[in-house]
């Protein structure tokens, strides 16, 4: 007889929903981890280009500072409204447009300034921009104070304009100074390159000494050697320092001695070589080797 109790039981349903939620959770967690992990990693090595300046470039910093002191005197004095517009092209238009109060004086002043400027530019190369900056600041400050104080005095206008002209020239000077700074940074880079060369040279010298010491240790000098004759060999090297071939390019006159040096070189294989790529270039693939019995 077969009853319902005989029927095989189904395995009870496991907690499928919970398992599904957990599986999703694992993936969400992993993706979050990846997003944060990867975004942290990608942000770190962002390339940054740096220009080295000895001082901040003056011209770019000045224009925003300029307009501020000017407006206040403009408002109370309608006569003063003239100076601001010609400012950018001050050099040429200012003389004709200016009132005739101090034309002569101004011309003389301008001449003097030009000369002064030329002298300055010529003599001060390294410190020009610092000085210019300081002077400029001081002058801007003074100009502002004067303007505020003597807004009523029209006499001073010409003087003010002169000062502005001076400022413009100083701006130019600052420009040239910035250029000079750039030049100096360039020359610094060149200096760094030459420093690197010097480093390489010192490494090369050190290894040259090591090589000759090793060869010297392996040299068996012939008995009949007299004096301190010099042998010059051309050694072909593998990058590992292995000696491929040795050829005498300048004999000492004593064949036995030449032979001894060649043997010593072959015996010294591998020669010590610097790890630095640039320094290694002095040795591989060919090395001109000079040997003297007595150093």
């Amino acid at each position: 007889m077969i009853s319902a109790a005989d029927a095989p039981r189904n395995a009870r349903s496991p907690r499928k929903a919970l398992a599904g939620a957990l599986a999703l959770g694992v993936h969400v967690l992993f993706v979050l981890l990846l997003i944060f992990g990867v975004s942290w990693q990608t942000r770190r090595p962002a390339p940054v280009m740096v220009d080295l300046w000895q001082a901040l470039p003056e011209p770019s910093a000045q224009p925003p500072a300029r307009p501020q002191p000017l407006p206040p005197p403009k408002a109370p004095e309608p006569v003063k409204a003239a100076p601001p517009p010609p400012q950018p092209v001050e050099k040429e238009p200012s003389p004709p447009e200016a009132p005739d109060i101090a034309l002569e004086k101004r011309k003389a002043e301008a001449d003097r300034l030009k000369k002064l400027q030329a002298a300055k530019a010529a003599e001060e190369k390294a410190k020009a921009e610092e000085k210019a900056k300081a002077e400029e600041k001081a002058k801007a400050e003074a100009a502002r104070k004067e303007r505020e104080k003597q807004a009523a005095e029209q006499k001073r206008q010409a003087l003010l304009r002169q000062m502005e002209a001076e400022d413009m020239k100083q701006q130019l000077a600052a420009d040239t100074a910035a250029n000079e700074a750039r030049m100096t940074s360039l020359s610094e880079a060149r200096a760094a390159a030459s420093k690197r060369q010097a480093e390489v040279a010192s490494v090369v010298g050190r290894y040259r000494d090591q090589i000759s010491a090793k060869v010297r240790g392996n040299t068996r000098l012939p008995d009949d050697l007299k004096g301190n004759p010099q042998v010059r060999c051309l050694v072909k090297l593998l990058p590992t320092g292995e000696v491929v071939s040795v050829r005498v390019t300048q004999s000492s006159g004593n064949p036995a001695y030449d032979e001894a040096v060649v043997r010593a070189l072959e015996k010294s294989s591998p020669l010590p070589l610097p790890a630095d790529r640039d320094a290694r270039a002095a040795f591989v693939p060919e090395l001109s080797f000079v040997h003297r019995p007595k150093e």
Binding site: A11, P14, R15, K16, L18, A19, G20, L22, A23, L24, V26, H27
Partner: peptide, 20 residues
């Protein structure tokens, strides 16, 4: 991604059922 989701689902189902 589907395979991973499914396998994790089964991993958890099996974890529960075998533990029980």
């Amino acid at each position: 991604l589907g395979a991973s989701l499914m396998s994790w689902w089964f991993i958890f189902i099996k974890m529960f059922s075998i533990k029980r």
